[in-house]
Design a protein around this nucleic acid. Structure first.
Lengths: 348, 348
DNA sequence: TTGAAAGCGCTAACAG
DNA sequence: CTGTTAGCGCTTTCAA
């Protein structure tokens, strides 16, 4: 393994020498961390420009213990979610002049040695932790170390009080299911669960039961299947139900991805949507409006989640505190797949 | 602005003291960078575990001038592209035990001071540079500094010889257009350009002209519109053409996103696809198979691009050299929108 | 307003 | 095989 042969970059000493001042003065001029006479400052900046000097981030971080960077921890994915989330994060970041590091946590590597861990913790002033990207004991360790963190799409594990940003899953689901029942007169509504232990999924399930109860509909566990937030799993689940002769007039998939699988399965079985069966999802991901028929779903405010999370994290870093939990109100996005007529699509 | 009050983390000295050895030995044990007697090593690791010690990345980077991290530079966006790209990158990274930093280059901030620049250059051993994320002069500066880099989806700017990974745009387009002409007997094929100066877009246009020529079809500049890699722009362009009374029997949108806009516009105008007009795109993004009708397109090998790029970059970092350009063969993905019958969908 | 100098935590010769 | 020591490039007291 070769050591990369990089050209020697100019250092702060080169700048100091060229400007005829000390390194301390250069540092002050750059960071405005102390008084510098205007003329001196000007000379420093001139030298910086002439040398095309760039401070070394590692040295800076080591000395000042601040990186002016926040880290985003994601489980090893590249889902539809990512794009929208990133958009929100960026938007917020641009305003605050922080930098962003996205660390993908490859769970496979996690066990190798403690040193294959993502380096975020030492490389950033704070962390945005997407649900599922960190094991609980890691969360404990980081939390104990005092690293500012914000949890995305899940609430703080018991024993810790890490601020979080979550979406109103339950209420959104109740609205959605109630719409199916009251507007479209559906009574046998399938629910396709997401992954086990996934907070969003369990809350959506709670919302499902609650909506049925509120509307006086008798629950039927036959109608519960496993979609696993996956198109193919959801498709299988629907085929399976139909094979077993289970009758239903609507399907609520725990996310849009699963809903797309449902649509596919129903299409293959020549079941007309929404005429015979209504299909709805959750997230309002970029998929939703492109499906056939366009999917009625609940907007999970992905972009805004990113935005708010960054705001909170920076509060935490700079002020030392932020509100414990931000709940983003979700809202219904009505399209065709529930049985409504094509409405002006306000969901994009 | 408060300094974050992080708990003091254990350092290599704490580990050394606890294990009864010197810091050099601890370093050797951790990095396997020199001989350490098994018993000693064991004692070191025991101390590490007990202290829950984590090496400080900044200090490490400063001392060793290697971060074991590669940076991905993206323009400030969150498109459909990145999910797939990231998947490929991750896949390759996991195998190589490097870490990934994704730096979003916010062009807006770029001008503030030289120090608001993305920190990638000092924080990673090499850079993956996505097309459009860096201005040419930055590319020059970085290249001069000797930082290993790989260009994604564009070739090295004149004067530099930065290795790159690109997709076979021209050939893929020729196949696609030829299919339209020979199989579906289309003769008036609209082309909706991508953004100006975008290499992928211009190459696809070249392919378009070439295919027409090869098949003896007279080009007609009336059929050229602007899709801008955007659904809404493409939709507008189609409406505009129809308003102007331009007749066509097929549309080739420079990317899938634009194709989706075409489909929408045509749907609004009640033009049956593919019966009256064939529609095709480019990329085979996650959208394509979900559109109605499912989109015939060219697979741009996004995931593999990420994979190959990482492989090349690591070659460059560790071996000091890699092949100047990797051209990934694209291939046709036939679905319904061109007029073919639904085929087994091999494009996902 | 400026400079000298002591680290930040780690790696990498160089001795032993 | 192991320890000593000199930095890596920057920030930050503390004096001047």
């Amino acid at each position: 393994m070769m050591t990369p042969k990089q050209v020697q970059q100019p250092t702060i000493m080169d700048v100091a020498a060229r400007a005829g001042v000390s390194t301390a003065t250069v540092s002050r001029a750059i960071n405005q961390s102390g008084p510098v006479r205007p003329g001196t400052s000007e000379a420093v900046w001139k030298a910086i420009r002439e040398l095309d000097y760039q401070p070394n981030v590692a040295a800076r971080g080591l000395a000042s213990r601040r990186t002016h960077t926040i880290g985003l921890l994601l489980p090893g994915i590249g889902g539809e979610f990512f794009a929208a989330l990133l958009r929100g994060i960026e938007h917020s970041l641009v305003e605050s002049r922080y930098n962003l590091l996205v660390h993908s946590t490859f769970p496979q590597n996690y066990t190798a040695t403690p040193f294959t861990r993502a380096l975020g913790e030492h490389n950033s002033d704070g962390l945005l932790v997407f649900t599922g990207s960190l094991q609980d004991h890691e969360l404990h360790r980081l939390s104990k170390s005092g690293l500012p963190m914000i949890l995305l799409y899940c609430s703080s594990p018991p024993g810790l009080k890490i601020p979080s940003v979550v979406v109103e899953n339950r209420k959104g689901t109740v609205q959605l299911i109630t719409h199916l029942i009251q507007v479209h007169n559906r009574k046998r509504i399938v629910f396709l669960r997401g992954p086990d232990n996934h907070e969003d999924s369990t809350e959506r399930e709670t919302g499902y039961w609650e909506a049925l109860a509120l509307n006086g509909i008798k629950p039927d566990t036959d109608l519960i299947g496993h979609g696993d937030f996956s198109s193919s799993e959801a498709s299988k689940a629907i085929h399976n139900m139909m094979d077993r002769g289970i009758v239903f007039d609507a399907v609520f998939a725990a996310d849009d991805e699963a809903a797309s699988g449902v649509l596919q399965a129903l299409h293959q079985r020549c079941v007309p949507v929404p005429d015979k069966v209504s299909v709805v999802g959750f997230d309002n991901s970029s998929l939703a409006s492109h499906l056939t028929p366009p999917l009625t779903t609940v907007d999970a405010r992905i972009e805004q989640t990113g935005y708010v999370a960054v705001t909170k994290l920076i509060e935490l870093i700079e002020l030392g505190t932020t509100s414990p939990v931000s709940i983003l109100p979700s809202h219904l996005v009505i399209r065709r797949s529930c049985g409504c007529e094509a409405a002006p699509d306000s969901g994009d």
